[in-house]
Structure formats: C-alpha cells, structure tokens
Write a protein that binds this DNA or RNA. Sequence first.
DNA 1: CCACAATATATCAATTTGATAGTAACGGTA
DNA 2: TACCGTTACTATCAAATTGATATATTGTGG
Lengths: 169, 169
Amino acid sequence: MEIRTLCLGILALGDATGYEIKKMVAEGSFSFFSEASYGSIYPALTKLTEEKLIDCRAEQQEKRPDKKVYSLTPDGRKVLEKALTKDPGPDRNRSEFLAALLFAEAVAPTRVSDLILDRIEQHDEKITELSALLDYNSPDSASNFVIEYGIAIQKAAKKFLTTHKDRLR
Amino acid sequence: MEIRTLCLGILALGDATGYEIKKMVAEGSFSFFSEASYGSIYPALTKLTEEKLIDCRAEQQEKRPDKKVYSLTPDGRKVLEKALTKDPGPDRNRSEFLAALLFAEAVAPTRVSDLILDRIEQHDEKITELSALLDYNSPDSASNFVIEYGIAIQKAAKKFLTTHKDRLR
DNA sequence: CCACAATATATCAATTTGATAGTAACGGTA
DNA sequence: TACCGTTACTATCAAATTGATATATTGTGG
C-alpha cells in the first residue's frame, strides 16, 4: 500500500494530524502491519491537500504550535474507494530473527537456542501489547478483528517455537 | 537486517552470484521473510568486495556473460558472526490486506467478505508453495525449520480468517 | 518459428527511511 | 527549584532502497 492510500484510509476513520497518523502507524492498531516515517507522511499530506483529496484546517492551541488537522474530502473518499477495489498485494514480511536463525546455524550454532528463547519472550510482550489495544465496546469492529488476527499470529509463532525449539541442536 | 548482513549470511550458506542472491530472496526459502532488489544487492556486493569481506571470481561461460561468483572471506565470516551476536530487531510486516480490511469497513463494507475469501485462497497457495521448498534429506536443518515456521503462520492466519470470516457483517 | 521465460549484470529516478532539529509544556525526582 | 526525560507537534535531508527498465543470449512451449 502506498503512503497516499494509507493516509487516505486513516483519515477515513477520523480526522488526524500528521503526528497522530505517525503514532497510529508506530504504536496503535496499525503498528503490526504498517510502517511510515514523517519523511513520507508529511509530503504525502501536502500533496493530497494540493489535489483536494484531503482538507487541512489549522487549529490554534494556547502556547503550542498550531495543529494541522487533516480530513478526507468527498473526492478523497472516492479515490480511496477506487483504490480498495483493487486486490491487495501480498504481505511483505521482514524478519531479522529468521535470517539470524538461518545464518547462525552456519557460523555460530550455539547462538541458535538463545535466539529462540529470547524470541518466545518477545512474543509474550507483543501479545500483551496487542491485547491492550482491544476495544471491548465494539467487539465486532474491523479494528478488533485486525488486532485479534495479530494476536492469533503471535500465538501461533510462539507455539511453533516452543514446540520445535530443541530441534536445532 | 541490512542488505550487507543479508548478503554476508547468504554467502555463508554457499557461494552465489548477485542474480542467485536475488532469486533466493524473491523465490527461495528467504522469500517470505526478506526482500531486496538488484539496486541494493549489486552495490552491496561491490562494497563488500572492496572491504575484502567477500571475494569475487569471474567464471567464464560459453556465449553468456561472465558469472561473478562471490564467496565469504574469513574476515567476512568474522563480521557476520559479530553481527549475529546483536539482538535481531523486531519483525516488520506490511499487510495491504489488513489495511484494506480496516478501511473497507469504513468506505465499502460490502467489499470486506470478498477480501477475506480471496485471502483464504491465497493462504492455500502460499502453503503449497512453501511446502515445495522443504528438503526431506535434511529434516532438521535451519532451512526446513524456517520454512515450517512459515507454513505454521500461514495456517494460523487461514484458520483465523476461516473461523471469524462472518464476524464483520 | 516465434514469443516468452530464464540467466546474468547493471543503472536510475522516485520513494522511503532514519535520524535529527526546533519549540514548548508537563511530570518526576533530587 | 532546577534539571531531565517524555509527550506533543511540525519539518527537513542525506542515504538507502525500490521498482522498473536496458542489454544480451539461450532454452522452451505452443
């Protein structure tokens, strides 16, 4: 997904500043399946505003710099709808852990079980973190669906590692 | 994982050309947890060669351009071992599917179940694809471990979607 | 026989990252 | 009270990376 569509989509869920978009992507319910940096978000918002796909209103705040709050325009909504008719591309996963595992077997085999044990712990942390994002007020929302999907994946990964951790000796 | 380390690690598993590295990353057992393009692989190989971390020998071939076969040097091996002592960073996953699901609920709710049904099929394809990569001659290799990990994740994702597909109506 | 895939190297504009900078309030702690 | 780290906000930029494309030859299915 291009940053453009990501911004459009997030704004379809509610108005937001660039900072808030970044936060959702880095810490919120988007964090485990999306990434974007300021260097891509801000230019995207500027360009989308020029194209009238989003609106920008400056909200004054006492003793703080103005907030630039962006919201989707009807045109932007159309463009988003159009983008969503296309098949989503395949997932792109990068795992330093799996690469390290593969390489460690070749050059530092004693490292392998450390790697796996650490990773199992990290899954527990991630599961706790994701569970905290669940919203019990709207149990059947897409947001909860996506978070529970994330939890299911984390649990499956943990289970695989726990079951097979002694295989690589 | 930096491209540099990725190249070093792949060469630790055996000599290879830039083309072969790209192929492993795009189609082989690395395909579901790593990515890299020619534009990053070739410059990385050139730089690593300059730094004497890898060697390059030109293999002549009849009627084809020379193959540049790269191999890890003892120095390169040391650098790789060092890199592997560091904790691997967290996985980075990008899923257009999950983003589309979240956005579709807001702007095109009828699209949601299509998205999920298509995705379930794609998981079946991916499972078949990964299974074909398994090497039955070395059942306990790290390579098979990683592929089976991938299969386990695909199955878990498929199961989640199958179980919960009717929740978002 | 032809179009297309595979083998192989390589480049490049456009995008994206990751780090950093600036500014101000708030919270904890010494 | 002074200091320090964090949160809130916008913004930039060098460096890394992508994705597409070019070039050239052989092998292969229709």
